[in-house]
Design a protein around this nucleic acid. Sequence first.
RNA 1: GGCGAGGUAGCUCAGUCGGUUAGAGCACUGGCUUCAUAAGCCAGGUGUCGCGGGUUCGAGUCCCGCCCUCGCUACCA
Length: 569
Amino acid sequence: MTRYLVTSALPYANGPIHFGHVAGAYLPADVYVRTLRMQGEDVLYVCGADEHGVAITIGADREGLSYADYVARWRDEMKAVFDHLGIEFDVWSGTSISPPHRELSQEFFRRLDDNGYLIERTTEQLYCTTDAMFLADRYVVGTCPNCAHEGARGDECPSCGTWLDPLRLLEPRCKVCGTEPERRSTRHWYLDLARLAEEHLRDWFAAGEWKPNVRAFVETMLKDLRERPITRDMSWGVPVPEDRAGGETGKVLYVWFDAPIGYVSFTKEWAEREGRPEAWRDYWQDADTRLVHFIGKDNIAFHCVVFPAMLWGVKQDYVLPWRVPANEFYNLQGRKFSTSENWGIPVEEFFARHDSEVARFYLLSSLPETADSEWRWEEYQRVANTSLADTIGNLATRVLRFLDKRFDGRVPELHARHEAELDRAILEECGPLTDPADSVRAFQFRRAAEALVANAAAANVFVDRHAPWKLAKEDPELAASVLNTCCEWLGWLARWMAPFLPGKAQALWAMLGQPGRVADAPWPGLPEAGSWRSLPAGQRLGEVQGLFPKLDDEAVAAEIAALEARASG
RNA sequence: GGCGAGGUAGCUCAGUCGGUUAGAGCACUGGCUUCAUAAGCCAGGUGUCGCGGGUUCGAGUCCCGCCCUCGCUACCA
């Protein structure tokens, strides 16, 4: 048994979760966790909201809410989406509410400081007297010194593409209130990434196994590492430890610094709740633990460079990431998901009309694993109808309804003289069989989804070749053996389905008359001739019902029309 | 600008170490079947592998140049 600590990127508590986020970082992680658990691994799945930072204070001010209320609202709303989709964390928390978070973040700061990885520096920055805050680059707008474009941002001019510094902008204004900011000097702490890379990070990364997109990005970044500020002048966040602030007040840890520490804080929170307060160390400070970060590609720098640098720099034997299966971006019907342009699928409406398990499966079969991909309603319909309803759902009903009619709704008997022949037929002659878990472990979820459908399709071939409805008249014993084989196969299918379609898998499990939770059954792997059957003959089957609803063309057209109507209205 | 990823059948994509005639699913057509949610099975066609050059006995695959799409570009998180 191997120990795994799995994380999904902490979603920023400043807006809704959409299917793009789900496909990028949450659903694959959930499937990975469920699969490993069925395979007997020790897995902890940690997530929570990222709740600090200036964007949140601005959002809360705009809505007249306290920061705490504002992030709590998004925290709860995001959790509701995860619940709908069956994404189950062992702990879901938030960086502003997790009890250990403040102390732990400050401890990271102190230890990095003690170990010589922090640099203090005083610089001039723009300060808005109206909003009483220093302005981050993107919160300053002004006139571009290069092309005179009036809408230039503090970091870049969108017109000529020049890299800017806010201090270079002509007629700078605060993006929030329009006031002209003044220059003030301020002292901050910087993380010495260059030194951390020199001492350990480069070697560590070079020895790892990474997806091509991750390796390429990080190797470029490692060539030219600058120090990064880790503090900010504001009130919302984890305060810089008083014993290190040197009299400075009003400074907090910069949100990118405290956010990933949330993974650790939340693990500690989980351990406390379990009544084993030291158990978090098993996951974070045991060299054999495999730390897996599921993220979108925009987060590669943090999870493969900055956070590992922090984990190593505190010299507390923290494990560094083992794999970072960063996904590309997921779009919607040809365009980017966009809250501001109303280009999205309102999740509550979606769940009112559609089956969330089907959504899970469709998302998994279209994940942006190697390139950007997208949600297309036409493809959603195809997957829902062809792969799920026709291939998997119909397999179950064609077998089980026949048994209801002709075999008293019980698992038929396998006659010993048929076993070898039928094993050979289903295992070798009805199409290639593959273990979906192999692909899941390689982070190839699309392939795993395909394997699942292919394994079901093989049983359809088997049924057709043996035509039990004919055999029932000519050779009832052989018919029974054939249908016994089909029942067993459905049992395997239910277990193969469990990580992908947990609810449907359970429904199928119950239809077979199996007690308990299918997720508690061990992962079946691939069946081997002579030893793969386990259902007792005569076992009563459960009530047969259709597993998957079908989606007609009108429904699809209506969804696309609604999508476009929202965007234009 | 820099960096990265991608460009393969009508659509979505797979192609390992360079190796036979470039594959799968969907869609489409024909046949079979009637257990099943009008579901299932069998059979069938389709390619300037983005463009140009190079290396090689042999290139979708390796090298160089170019074109197109998307993303990142680190004090937004």
